[in-house]
C-alpha cells in the first residue's frame, strides 16, 4: 500500500543560509522504524530534486523519535538574496510530506 508522508508524520522546515532543514516526526512512534527504512537521504534527495540542488544528510533521533534532514543548496541562494517567493523555504515542510512510500 502506498501512503503519503503527510498521513504518517509532521514536519517543520528551517533555514540556515542556503541550507534547508526538515524534521520528520511520526504521529505514532511505532511508525518511526518504517520511516527510518523508507525515507532515506537518497529517497528525499530524489523526491526534492526540483528543489534541492546539493546533498541531503539524514540524522536519526530515536530518542524523540524523529528524523532530521539537512539539505544543501536548497534555497536558491538563501533568505537574504533569493528571488523566490518563499525565501526562507518555510513552506517546504509540506513538500517533504508530499512524498509517497510503501507501507
Amino acid at each position: 500500500m502506498t501512503v503519503k508522508l503527510y498521513d504518517l508524520a509532521h514536519s517543520r522546515a528551517g533555514d540556515k543560509g542556503n541550507t534547508l532543514t526538515l524534521s520528520l516526526i511520526p504521529y505514532n512512534a511505532d511508525d518511526y522504524e518504517l520511516l527510518r527504512v523508507r525515507v532515506t537521504a537518497e529517497a528525499v534527495r530524489h523526491h526534492l530534486r526540483d528543489i534541492v540542488a546539493g546533498e541531503v544528510t539524514r540524522y536519526e533521533l530515536p530518542n524523540l523519535p524523529a528524523l532530521q534532514f539537512v539539505c544543501q543548496q536548497a534555497l536558491t541562494g538563501g533568505v537574504t538574496t533569493s528571488l523566490t517567493m518563499d525565501t526562507h523555504g518555510k513552506s517546504l515542510s509540506y513538500a517533504l510530506l508530499e512524498m509517497k512510500i510503501e507501507r
Partner: peptide
C-alpha cells in the same frame, strides 16, 4: 519536537558561543 529540531543541522553538534550542544539524549 517540531521546535526542538527547528533550524538544527547536526543534532549532536548544535553550535553556540557557549557550548557544542547535543540534542540526541
Amino acid at each position: 519536537k517540531e521546535q526542538l529540531l527547528y533550524e538544527v543541522m547536526d543534532p549532536s553538534r548544535y553550535l553556540t558561543p557557549d557550548v557544542v550542544a547535543d540534542f540526541t539524549q
